[in-house]
Simulated scan of single mutants.
Amino acid sequence: MECRLNITAGYKEGKSYIKDLYVGTPFRVVSVGQRKRDNKLYQMIMSTSPGILDGDQYIIGISLEEQSRLQLASQSYQRLFDMENKATQNLTVDIGDHAFFAFVPHPVVPHENSNFESRAKITLGKESSVLISEIITCGRKHYGEVFKLKKFHNLTEVFHEGKLIVKDNVLIEPGRIPIQNIGILEDFTHQGSLIFVSTKKDTDKTELVNHLVEKSKDFPEVEIGISALESGGFVVRALSHGAEVMYNYFLAVQDFLWEEKILTP
């Protein structure tokens, strides 16, 4: 089934708002920022489907106009069901000048024999920022499904002024790659990536990275590594034995960056 979702965030009189919204089955979008007083836009993506099924094609488009601020959230863990063939997702994000988009979704749970390919293309304007993450679990561990998926492949590309500045390629294919060998995941069962890229010229990467390293001490169950990007920003890699603690750490990173003064209008 082809599943489409398009969101356009606008900016007017100092406030971000939903300028345009197209929701196709099985998506729903609800506002979750009623108690916020910062004039930014908070939306949650929901679904009437229990998860992604064989043959599903998710096509999601996000657009942020100049100066807008949009933070997306997901409803729950994303399940990838048993598949004869595969399912796909294409995410396109266009971020205008002086805008900021953040999306920290719940972890992905690939069931046995699931096959999922995802691609995200993000375009940044001038003085704009993006924060996006993903967490992949080993599957339904308590059902004995530890890395019994067929394939999980996610490619994320970030562009600025027509130039590719960040490319992140995650592939888990247990039938070909010994995922739990030394140098890969070893005995860890969950892995995550968080990408933050900013074209703001006054972004102090060193200060941000040092803060996030210090913050990680509050989450001792998560092993993290942070790499600063030449283009401005950083990539966080995380490993753990559980999804919730890693998800909470990523939310803490998002909260810090979202409120940081250098990222506000």
Rank of each mutant, 00 (worst) to 15 (best):
V197H: 01
V104W: 06
V253I: 03
D202G: 05
S129M: 08
F250D: 02
V29I: 06
Y249M: 08
L263N: 14
Q75Y: 04
F116T: 00
G125C: 07
L263E: 10
F159A: 03
G232S: 07
V245K: 13
K167N: 04
Q34W: 15
L164V: 04
I52D: 09
G125T: 08
K215V: 00
Y11Q: 05
K141N: 13
N113Q: 11
K126N: 13
V108K: 03
R28K: 15
E214P: 12
G175L: 03
D38C: 10
S133R: 11
D38A: 01
N248Q: 10
F188G: 02
H190V: 02
D204F: 08
K215S: 09
D97M: 06
T92D: 14
G33S: 06
I62E: 11
A228I: 00
K201V: 01
S68Q: 03
Y77P: 15
L70I: 04
I60T: 04
I135W: 09
A120C: 10
V209R: 04
H111Y: 08
G233K: 03
D38G: 08
C138P: 11
V170G: 12
R69W: 15
I52E: 08
N154W: 15
K167C: 04
D218W: 10
E157I: 00
F147T: 06
C3H: 15
I172F: 09
D204K: 13
F101C: 08
P220N: 10
K86W: 06
V23I: 09
G33M: 07
G233W: 07
L208T: 00
E161G: 05
D204Q: 13
Y22E: 12
G175I: 02
P174Q: 00
V130R: 15
V213P: 15
D204W: 10
G144I: 02
R69A: 08
I52M: 04
Q71W: 11
I165R: 12
H160R: 09
A252K: 12
A73S: 15
I182R: 11
E13C: 04
K40Q: 11
F188Q: 08
V93I: 05
F103I: 03
N39H: 09
I165M: 06
L239N: 04
K201W: 01
L53I: 03
M46V: 06
A252T: 05
F219I: 03
R237A: 05
L194S: 01
M46P: 12
E186V: 02
P174F: 07
G183Q: 02
H160A: 02
L72E: 14
K86E: 04
M1A: 04
V213Y: 11
E2W: 12
N210S: 08
P50K: 00
V213R: 15
F147H: 14
C3Y: 13
N169A: 07
L164W: 06
A99D: 13
T123V: 05
P26R: 07
F219G: 10
Q180P: 10
S240H: 00
D82L: 10
Q254M: 05
K12P: 06
Y42V: 06
D187A: 06
G96I: 03
A9Q: 09
K163H: 12
L194F: 01
T203K: 06
T8W: 08
T203G: 09
V166T: 03
F116C: 12
L257R: 03
Y77S: 10
T8K: 09
L53T: 01
I195N: 11
S193I: 01
I262F: 14
H241E: 01
F196P: 09
K141D: 13
L208V: 02
A228S: 14
S47G: 11
Q78A: 09
I226W: 00
K148M: 14
L212W: 05
S47K: 13
